[in-house]
């Protein structure tokens, strides 16, 4: 008994500490989100940063998104044809590509790729600024780091990631269409017929809602991890890893929540 109680505590105390850290982080991210929203009143003051971030997140990610979405559409076409051809009419391939891309693959894959590019980049950049006193320097120049660093990135996430998702959806469908009519014995008319039969505006809206949520979340998590980085280069590395892992997990959780609520 004398040994069991200390062993119990050595097991439970770290769990308690991790739990506390978890809730501390949830509180921190939520607090940062509302502070950033509050800083929206100074959007004109930080307009240059907003434009720069929108450019960096949006234009800077287009190449990557084009490649990822093209291959997503192509592989969806091949898989759909392989699985459905013996049992369903060919035009259902068009329907399947459109629905799976608009509702799921477009927003989720775009977000996962951008969690790597934008989220990690944000955490590393702001983390480096934090450990090299550049964030303190901003404060000393009477510039609020939430307004200068977090709010422009949050706007960029909310605006540019849905925009990239629209591009991704379009490219994926075009790529799927190209593969479908070239490798499966299928006409363009059949493909379009399938798409039109199963097109619902509601699916597009739900897909965009997902992209909107993912976009804000990716930049928010990256900024939070960067602003809380400590202990030099190792701390920046940890912040970057945590940003990508947390964003990836939250994307999948949010994906489920939105699907469950709106579908």
């Amino acid at each position: 008994m004398n040994k069991i109680i200390p062993q119990f505590f050595t097991m439970v105390v770290p769990l308690g500490e991790s739990g506390l850290r978890f809730f501390e982080q949830i509180f921190g991210v939520t607090s940062l989100f509302f502070q950033a929203l509050y800083e929206l009143r100074k959007i004109w003051f930080y307009r240059r940063q907003v434009v720069e971030q929108c450019y960096s997140v949006g234009v800077g990610s287009i190449g990557l998104i084009l490649v990822v979405s093209a291959f997503t559409g192509m592989v969806t076409a091949v898989q759909a044809a392989y699985q459905m051809e013996p049992y369903y009419p060919k035009y259902t391939v068009g329907a399947l590509i459109l629905q799976s891309v608009v509702l799921e693959l477009g927003p989720v894959l775009t977000a996962l790729v951008l969690a790597g590019r934008v989220g990690a980049g944000t955490a590393a950049e702001i983390g480096t600024m934090k450990v090299s006193e550049q964030v303190d320097a901003l404060e000393s120049l009477a510039l609020n780091p939430v307004g200068y660093l977090a709010m422009p990135r949050l706007i960029a996430g909310f605006v540019m990631i849905p925009a990239l998702t629209i591009i991704s959806d379009t490219v994926a469908v075009i790529a799927g269409y190209t593969v479908a009519i070239n490798t499966i014995d299928m006409t363009a008319l059949e493909f379009v017929k399938g798409m039109r039969m199963y097109f619902h505006l509601h699916d597009v809206i739900v897909g965009m809602m997902k992209a909107f949520c993912f976009g804000g979340m990716i930049t928010l998590i990256g900024t939070y991890m960067g602003l809380t980085a400590k202990n030099g280069a190792k701390g920046v590395g940890t912040a970057t890893t945590l940003s990508v892992v947390t964003s990836a997990v939250l994307i999948l959780i949010l994906d489920y929540v939105v699907a469950q609520v709106f579908l």
Binding site: E125, M129, S132, E133, D136, A137
Partner: peptide
């Protein structure tokens, strides 16, 4: 404020 590591914005 002149910081110990200068803290110039490197971007």
């Amino acid at each position: 404020f002149v910081f110990q590591l200068s803290a110039l914005f490197d971007s």
